[in-house]
């Protein structure tokens, strides 16, 4: 499904389009990838500080607060900026994950509430990006994979500032191909990331390159 524009409203909308094999990703659906069958059960990540820029000059901030994109909740995929169209911009910038100042600020509410399942418990810190599912070739128990990417302390800090070139359109579509992420991490070999580490940083760096605005 293409990234549809918000027909009713007059404001600029940012939409996250999560894809698998060039189609909108569905949870609990079997995807055949070579000899592997992949099923995604959970996908959630934090974005914040979304703002529009023109040649690196700030045009308009859209959303400063932390927003949890959760594939299970389709309304979370879109962000209505409440800003009227007609602005001239050619870039969108946002932060993927939670910065170190927020990470040490205690118990926070809203999308950051620890009931959202994005907080590590035995060691403090938010999970920036969570992907869980099964892959038939994954040697773990029940073929399950879990990638919980997060970490804010040197050398495992892994929140990312992302800049994308976009047209000055009413709907800003941001694509994230999950099949490409899995092709990189290889669930048949690496199926569990549950704490900050070198691998976590490597995966998060790669993940940040996968966002694009077509």
């Amino acid at each position: 499904m293409a990234c549809t524009s918000n027909i009713l409203g007059q404001s600029i909308v940012v939409r996250f389009q999560i894809e698998f094999q060039n189609q909108a990703l569905s949870l609990q659906k079997n995807y055949v990838v070579g000899a592997d069958t992949i099923n995604i059960e959970k996908l959630k990540f934090y974005v914040s500080n979304i703002a529009l820029y023109q040649n690196d000059q700030l045009v308009k901030p859209i959303n400063k607060a932390f927003h949890l994109v959760d594939l299970e909740d389709s309304t979370s995929l879109g962000l209505d900026s409440k800003i009227n169209t007609g602005l001239v911009f050619n870039q969108i910038k946002f932060t993927l994950g939670i910065d170190s100042v927020t990470q040490v600020s205690g118990a926070l509410g809203g999308d950051l509430d620890p009931t959202k399942g994005m907080y590590w418990t035995w060691q403090s810190g938010y999970i920036n990006f969570k992907l869980e599912g099964t892959a038939s070739n994954c040697p773990s128990r029940n073929h399950h994979f879990q990638y919980h990417l997060g970490g804010y302390q040197y050398p495992f800090a892994c929140w990312q500032d992302i800049v994308l070139i976009v047209p000055s359109a009413k709907t800003i579509c941001i694509k994230l191909p999950i099949d490409e992420f899995l092709a990189f991490v290889q669930p048949q070999k690496n199926y569990e990331i549950m704490s900050p580490s070198n691998k976590t940083v490597e995966y998060a760096n790669y993940l940040s390159t996968l966002f694009s605005a077509p």
Partner: peptide, 23 residues
């Protein structure tokens, strides 16, 4: 392992050998 008193309680609450709950 815990960086702030306000998030400490998540650790015992969810520890399988302590309170084995979820918030």
């Amino acid at each position: 392992a815990i960086n702030h008193i306000e998030v400490q309680a998540l650790a015992p609450m969810s520890h399988p050998k302590e309170m084995a709950e979820t918030i």
